[in-house]
Amino acid sequence: MLFALEGSRALGERIATRLGLTLAPHEERIFEDGEHKGRPLVPVRGHDVHVLLSLFAAPSSSIDQKLCRLLFFIGALKDAGAGRVTAITPHLAYGRKDRRTKPQDPVTTRYVARLFEAVGTDQILAVDVHNEAAFENAFRCGAESVSARGLFVRHLLPLLEGREAVVVAPDTGGSKRAEALRLLLETALGRPVGSALMEKHRSGGEVSGTGFVGEVAGRVAIVPDDLVSTGGTMRRCAAACRERGAEAVFALATHGLFAGEAAAMLADPVFTGIVVTSSVPAPPLPVAAKTRLTMLDLAPLLAEAVRRLHGGGSLAELSDSLELPGGPVVLEMRE
């Protein structure tokens, strides 16, 4: 049984279609005083229930409002006797605050995990979490994460035909993610793919570091990250690649948040292309950005993950799969 709350309904419908289901009906109401409620409109007792809601900010609702709606809905499902409840949060907010970097800092990732546990969540499924180890350690309920790198690699293959490629980590924190993508891309291409690393330091909101390790001249540079917010990290890395002679630069980010000054990134000709997934719906886009931005649908990946979780299967090999039915699917960009 699959529910998709407002904010992720379009993605939920595509997942349901791939599973041969229809979305389970539910009610969401906002009262005049700002309070809200949500409830299933079908019996859930004893069922294996999945609830989808990506946690991102939108003009109609903040991240915190979405989180609260999801938690309340899970609580209602458990009170109604659901046998098992899986929260599907393609973009799980607050994943970047997984440790203290200053005295008295919060560890928000852990607090969010406690909230999910408090309402009775049995397991949570996310896509490309910021820190895999921190995510797994924060939750005492089941915590599953899959990666979209298989979708990205399948999309890149025709673009790299006859061209040398190098995967560039935009900072040291993303080096493991970049290496996993590089290895999968190398296997799929059947030829070596280079690696490079951009130096980055952040202090007091200021980003610094100009060091660059690796050879990109005459190659297609691929810069992966889990998310793009304002785009500052991606832009400085892409500019460094171009300065060193990269033939083309593709930015890959599972979660396209596009906050703040992200419009400047989308219009920056330093990028040959920017590829994101449908974990977050695309914001209203100017024509210049539409030509540079590609959105891959997460529905094939998430549908297969739900199928395996429901059947007691493993997600271990899913992130590297290049054989997902119907994937990758490029979604239409709208102005």
Rank of each mutant, 00 (worst) to 15 (best):
3 F>D: 08
3 F>A: 03
6 E>L: 09
16 A>D: 10
17 T>G: 14
17 T>R: 15
18 R>F: 00
25 P>C: 03
26 H>V: 00
28 E>V: 15
29 R>Y: 06
31 F>G: 04
31 F>P: 09
36 H>S: 15
36 H>V: 06
37 K>I: 11
44 V>A: 03
47 H>C: 13
47 H>D: 15
47 H>Q: 15
48 D>N: 12
53 L>K: 09
54 S>D: 03
55 L>K: 08
57 A>F: 03
58 A>D: 14
60 S>W: 08
60 S>V: 05
63 I>N: 01
68 C>D: 12
68 C>N: 11
68 C>F: 14
70 L>F: 12
72 F>A: 14
73 F>H: 02
73 F>E: 08
74 I>V: 14
79 D>Q: 15
84 R>E: 13
95 G>L: 02
97 K>V: 09
99 R>T: 00
107 V>F: 04
110 R>M: 07
112 V>M: 12
114 R>D: 14
114 R>G: 12
114 R>P: 00
117 E>D: 11
119 V>R: 03
121 T>Y: 01
122 D>T: 09
124 I>Q: 13
129 V>Q: 12
129 V>S: 01
130 H>W: 05
132 E>H: 14
134 A>R: 11
135 F>C: 13
138 A>H: 04
139 F>N: 09
139 F>W: 12
144 E>N: 15
144 E>W: 10
147 S>E: 09
147 S>L: 08
149 R>G: 00
151 L>G: 05
153 V>P: 09
153 V>N: 04
154 R>N: 15
157 L>W: 02
161 E>D: 15
162 G>E: 07
163 R>L: 14
165 A>Y: 02
166 V>D: 07
167 V>D: 08
170 P>C: 11
173 G>V: 01
177 R>E: 03
180 A>M: 09
184 L>I: 00
191 R>Y: 03
197 L>Y: 05
200 K>Y: 02
200 K>F: 01
203 S>V: 14
204 G>C: 07
205 G>K: 11
208 S>K: 13
212 F>N: 10
213 V>F: 14
217 A>V: 00
219 R>Y: 00
219 R>K: 15
221 A>C: 04
226 D>C: 01
226 D>T: 08
230 T>M: 00
231 G>T: 04
235 R>A: 13
236 R>M: 11
236 R>Y: 01
238 A>R: 11
239 A>S: 15
241 C>L: 08
247 E>A: 15
255 H>Y: 05
259 A>E: 15
262 A>T: 05
263 A>R: 13
265 M>H: 01
266 L>A: 10
268 D>C: 04
269 P>Q: 05
273 G>V: 00
274 I>A: 08
278 S>F: 02
278 S>Q: 11
284 P>F: 06
286 P>V: 11
296 L>F: 01
299 A>V: 05
300 P>N: 11
301 L>A: 07
301 L>T: 10
314 S>A: 13
314 S>R: 12
318 L>D: 10
318 L>G: 06
319 S>C: 07
325 P>G: 04
330 V>P: 00
331 L>N: 01
